[in-house]
Simulated assay, not measured.
Amino acid sequence: MDNNMSKEDMVREAVEEAKAKAAEQEEQQTEDMTENTDGDAKDTVAAAEETAEETAEATAESEESDVSEETDSEEKPEKKSKLFGKKNKKDKKDEKIEELNDRLTRQMAEFDNFRKRTEKEKTQMYEVGAKDIIEKILPVVDNFERGLDAVAEEEKGHPFMEGMEKIYKQLMTTLEGLEVKPIEAVGQEFNPDFHNAVMHVEDESLGENVVAEELLKGYMYRDSVVRHSMVKVAN
């Protein structure tokens, strides 16, 4: 410091130096603050950007999850409705199959009833025809029996009579094979289902309402009467 400087100059120089140092310090502090502010701003922006990215990702995942749940919720009711629909409402093909099966079952039942009815009618017609033929043959049997009964004892050994007896036996065997059999009458209790009473007699040796004599032999074909026995009933 110049010793020749006045005190005023010394003060003025000191003030200027102090002002220069203060300005320098202020400028340095301003730069430091600016750098710190820029760094904080950059960090804040980076953090904000990172947060925004995370938020966007989370939002995207949430939207995808919501879409997936909505899709599942839409598909599940549809599947359930389809599942319940199958239970509650039958397919047209299944309904058609059931209808055809039901129709076939009814037709088979009707055909079975028709078959049974036809067989019964055929059996009845056969029995009616057989009974008609048997009724026409019975008079021939009656004549055979009358003829054989009229033969004298000494003539029964004659070859002609033996031939007639053989024919008669063959005829009766044939009728028996056709399930034709004579009705028992003499000594049996009178039964209007099998017997036709044409006479009454008093006979103490017989019980009441008993067939005493058979005037014309009756015959049955299987379980039906072809011809009633004409009988004489006692008491």
Rank of each mutant, 00 (worst) to 15 (best):
A152C: 02
S205G: 08
E50S: 11
E57Y: 04
D66G: 08
F111G: 02
K120L: 12
K122L: 09
A60H: 03
R115C: 04
T30S: 11
V211Y: 02
E53L: 10
A109K: 06
A52Q: 13
S224L: 04
N3R: 08
E184G: 08
V128K: 06
K181P: 07
N191S: 03
A58W: 04
D112S: 03
D43I: 09
K76Y: 13
I183M: 01
G207K: 01
S62M: 07
E119S: 10
A56I: 10
F111H: 10
K122Y: 12
R12N: 11
Q107V: 04
I183T: 00
T37D: 09
K90I: 07
S62G: 12
D203H: 10
T30R: 15
N143D: 05
A46Y: 15
I167W: 00
T59P: 00
N113A: 14
N196T: 07
V141H: 01
L215W: 13
N143F: 07
E162T: 10
S81W: 10
T37Y: 14
E98L: 09
I167L: 05
A22G: 11
E35K: 13
N235H: 05
V231L: 06
A46L: 11
R227N: 04
M5D: 11
V210R: 00
Q107Y: 04
K217R: 08
T71A: 07
L148N: 03
L100N: 12
L100G: 05
M220E: 09
G187Y: 01
R103I: 09
K166Y: 05
T105M: 02
G85W: 06
V141S: 01
F111E: 05
E17A: 09
Q28N: 13
M5N: 10
D203Y: 06
N101S: 13
A56Q: 14
H195I: 01
M230I: 13
K136Y: 05
D102P: 00
N235E: 08
A152H: 10
A185V: 00
K156Y: 03
D66T: 15
R103N: 09
P77I: 08
P139W: 03
D40C: 07
A185T: 12
K80Y: 15
K122Q: 13
E179F: 08
A212S: 12
E50Y: 15
E53W: 10
P192S: 07
P139I: 02
D112W: 00
R227K: 14
M161Y: 10
V141M: 06
K136P: 01
M1T: 10
L104A: 11
N36I: 15
Q170Y: 05
M1S: 15
T59N: 09
L206T: 02
E35T: 15
S224F: 09
Q25W: 11
H195F: 02
A20C: 09
G187V: 02
N3H: 04
A58D: 07
M108T: 13
N209M: 04
E54F: 08
K80R: 11
A109Q: 10
V141A: 02
V233K: 00
D203P: 08
V198K: 14
Q29T: 06
K7C: 05
D38L: 14
P192E: 12
A60T: 12
D40I: 14
E99Y: 07
E70W: 09
D193I: 02
Q29G: 08
